[in-house]
Amino acid sequence: MRLYGLTGGIASGKSTVSTMLRELGAQVLDADVIAREVVEPGTPGLAAVAARFPGVLGPDGRLDRAKLGARVFADPTERAALNALVHPLVRQAFLEKVQALAAQGVERVVYDVPLLIEAGLQAGMDGVVLVWVPRPLQKARLMTRDGLDEAAAEARLAAQLPLDSKRPHATWIVDNSGELASTRAQVEQVWRAMLARG
């Protein structure tokens, strides 16, 4: 099985590219979805997060992502503590999903991971797709999308490796700063390249 990484940055349009790949027939595993699954009510993951970060559960017993986000985005130590709890659980769940897909005869999987390069996961991939936009556009989209002021947007961007620093690790770069049709054409080209790799 061939394993491809899909990454980008906050508000770079990675979800758009992920959707386009799915439409083309790609089997996409989304790290954010897996990360939510490992902290569902009743999981050891949620128990561990609740114990380490008191007060982050909502009245329904589910994780209050806004509360947790406010704590970890502001503090690198807290963010590292959360990652240390959640990342191993995500990695295990991902491996189980890949094994299940391999058993079904799936030949290639795209792993959609926001912090792929920060986590050093690119080393284990057969190729990496980077969804790229210029930083001023990324910040503007983030402010619009999440209703953030400039300082809050900067703090979120600072929590990730800049897109320009991710470029050297990419096999393919999808420039998502133009029209959707342009992005789609680039994604189709990348998918053809993945298929050509056997």
Rank of each mutant, 00 (worst) to 15 (best):
F73I: 04
R167V: 00
A185N: 11
V33W: 12
G120W: 05
E23P: 02
T16Y: 03
S18C: 03
G13N: 02
G124C: 04
V128K: 00
A48T: 04
F73T: 02
I173V: 08
E23Y: 00
V38D: 15
A66D: 11
V98D: 07
L101M: 14
T183S: 06
W172G: 00
D146Y: 14
G5P: 10
D30Q: 04
G120D: 06
W191Q: 09
G178E: 10
P76F: 03
A158R: 09
P136W: 15
E96S: 03
E78N: 04
P44N: 06
L29M: 05
A35K: 12
A159M: 00
L82P: 03
L24P: 02
W172H: 00
L157I: 09
L148R: 11
V56Y: 14
V98S: 05
N83L: 08
A50W: 14
E23N: 05
G13Y: 03
R71T: 03
L101K: 11
V33P: 03
V72K: 00
L68V: 11
Q104G: 08
W132E: 03
R52L: 15
F73D: 04
G13M: 04
A158K: 06
L89D: 11
S18M: 02
E179L: 08
V38A: 14
A80M: 12
A81K: 09
P114Y: 03
A153T: 08
P59W: 15
G42Q: 12
